[in-house]
Amino acid sequence: MQILNRVPKSVKIKEIIVENDMVKTFVVDFSLGARPGQFVMLWIPRLDEKPISVAMDNGSEMHFTVAAVGPFSNAMHELSVGDFVGVRGPFGTEFECDEGAHIALLAGGYGAAPLYFFAHEAVKKGAKVEFIVGARSADLVLYEERISALDCATVHVSTDDGSKGHHGYNTQVLQELLDAGGIEAVYAVGPEIMMLKGAEAAEAAGAKAFVSVERYMKCGFGVCGNCVVDGTGDPVCLKGPVMPWEEVKKIEDFGKYHRDEFGKKHNF
């Protein structure tokens, strides 16, 4: 039986990798045995605690890739090697694929981090990985070198401004790959509308699709009710974040709205 421990553990930051102007990866000498697609709660004392997807857990160390977009993530960016950060988890469902499958990973922005972790594990199972990384511009493309270094993984870059790779949406690149045939499953992490488009394209091409649903979370373990979605009434932290497309389609708010800390709705 799994030991029930949902109390943060403070661990020292061992290394900080600067990915670009907005994004850093924090490495801690600590493992929770997290699987690709799962998330943890990161805690900075007296500030806040937020859900962050796991960018790597190799059994001895964990990586968290964090974009500075709000008060919490900006504070994360102020931390130095040797500083403590609180970690609890891992929570939620994981990405999985069949042995030797031909799969496409659709990453928008920071979605590249958890999908890199998945690609890292998928190639061990003999999967052939088409990794589509989308970003606003060339300087914001994440994880490209690390993905290229994986055997059997091909990187496809797309940028909104055309400064690198395909000029336009990463979903257009996905469509070309699906049209070429052979893709068995699509895995999407990024903006919700991108995931919606990617999953619809996969379905139309007869491929399976899995998306990582993001909702406001407090506890991470199905008690607080903040991440409960309309339609199913289930908390995303337990049933997700990784969910098969046929389950996501039952979520009434997917692609339409999400809720804030009060439970109020906000349209995408």
Binding site: I3, V7, M41, C219
Partner: peptide, 8 residues
Amino acid sequence: PNPTMMGN
């Protein structure tokens, strides 16, 4: 603000 709940 969080953390707001925890347990074992």
